[in-house]
Design a protein around this nucleic acid. Structure first.
Lengths: 235, 235
DNA sequence: CAAATGAGTGAACGCTGTTCACTATCACAA
DNA sequence: TTGTGATAGTGAACAGCGTTCACTCATTTG
């Protein structure tokens, strides 16, 4: 590991300058407002210069989305670690942190999860590719759930009702976590589904027809899910 | 109600021609591929002519999104009406129809729910405005659920646990359906949350890290929700 | 010191939404 | 029937976009 040369230092500085400019445009004007010419203008450069650092605008935005996903994951992991030793508390803290970050960074949320780049899902049959937002976030929630299950196995709602088709369908998830029974894996995906759906509808303002305070609904759904998790075993 | 003049007929024909062209571009190249010039080119016209029918490209896309939402609602209502007289069957049929349409029309789904137009949510404090996708779709699901509750009130998971804050937060929904108890309204939103979250993750290919066959997971979550609905009362 | 590498520029191409002046056509009233 | 006003459509133009290319300049390297 040699020290970075002067050129390399300048280069990484320029790269982060470009991404900072892109993010500034993102938060002020939405994803559509990110343009190479605007970024270059803010940096006192010309647009073609950016091609020394990114092969295209789409690649730049994808890179920025990856950074934002990193930031979100760090936020979640910090919340999980700050929630104490109880796995249930960790789950609650992580879920609240996900909503917290998403509501406070709506355009970033849209960039990461909104699938703005048509080329993103162009990974044919590439299950579990590392950049997938769902994969990285799912893992943050899986750890506490696995620990909770290990400590006090709770009565699973669908126990004995899963057919072979579902077990086979969950193969990618169970390959990463063989200790998870199918029912628990399915329950975990239910929780992630509710969390993602609720937060995304709140961010996109698609709940105003029904709810004035989305946080109250969030807490209610969270409580209902926790009831499923430990309804009989714990209070 | 007078007969439309020749001018009016030509005008409505041109409007639907334009929207047909826009949709063709949408399904072939994604939302970003919709451009006034391309539409006009396909029609053998020039781009400024479209401004006789739509004030801007954004207005055209919003109009198209409204049409697609209409189409989706009609699809759902047809599935609901074809599902028989049992409210549970109607719920299942409508939910399956929602997934069916969304998976088969991914770009349309993205246009309707993906919030591509930043100006869409520029309705300040306008709860329940008529064009809201969530509102119109929520209503399709509310009718069978209300009927189910009317016939055989089922044990609600959160009975007696809702606080005043949640009841107040659900005011817009309960104003439209006063016969719904708070717990049932909350349960209904839970179901809509899961349905929307799961379908949207499947459409955006954000489930591949965990699931090979999203339909199996969909059916499992649907079964789990139905168990919540009538776990004790009915089989 | 010379050669090679890299950063940055300016011009250009083709595309976009949008505006404006202008023309041709159609509907309708005197 | 003839004139008049509304309407549809055109072509040119403007500003902005991503991207490519030839070119210059500074920096690193042999």
């Amino acid at each position: 590991m040699t020290a970075p040369t002067r050129r390399e230092r300048l280069r990484t500085a320029a790269v982060s300058d470009i991404k900072d400019g892109a993010r500034r445009l993102l938060v002020t004007g939405g994803p559509q407002a990110i343009s190479l010419r605007a970024i270059a203008r803010d940096m006192g450069m010309t647009a073609p210069a950016i091609y020394r650092y990114f092969p295209s605008l789409e690649a730049l935005i994808l890179d920025l989305a990856g950074d934002l996903l990193d930031e979100l994951c760090e936020h979640l992991e910090a919340a999980r670690d700050a929630a104490g030793a109880e796995p249930v508390d960790q789950l609650v803290g992580t879920a609240r942190a996900f909503r917290h970050w998403s509501v406070r960074h709506p355009v970033e949320f849209r960039l990461v999860f909104g699938n703005l780049m048509p080329g993103v899902d162009a990974f044919p049959d590439n299950c579990g590719y590392p950049g997938d937002p769902g994969a990285r976030l799912g893992d943050v929630f899986i750890t506490p759930l696995v620990e909770l299950w290990r400590r006090t196995p709770f009565p699973v709602p669908l126990a004995g009702q899963v057919d072979a088709g579902l077990a086979e369908a969950l193969a990618p998830l169970r390959a990463q976590h063989p200790e998870l029974p199918v029912e628990v894996a399915c329950l975990m995906l239910c929780g992630w589904t509710m969390l993602y759906g609720l937060v995304s509808m709140e961010v996109y303002h698609q709940l105003r027809w029904a709810v004035t305070d989305p946080e109250a609904l969030f807490e209610a759904e969270l409580a209902a899910f926790l009831q499923q998790l430990g309804g009989a075993g714990r209070q």
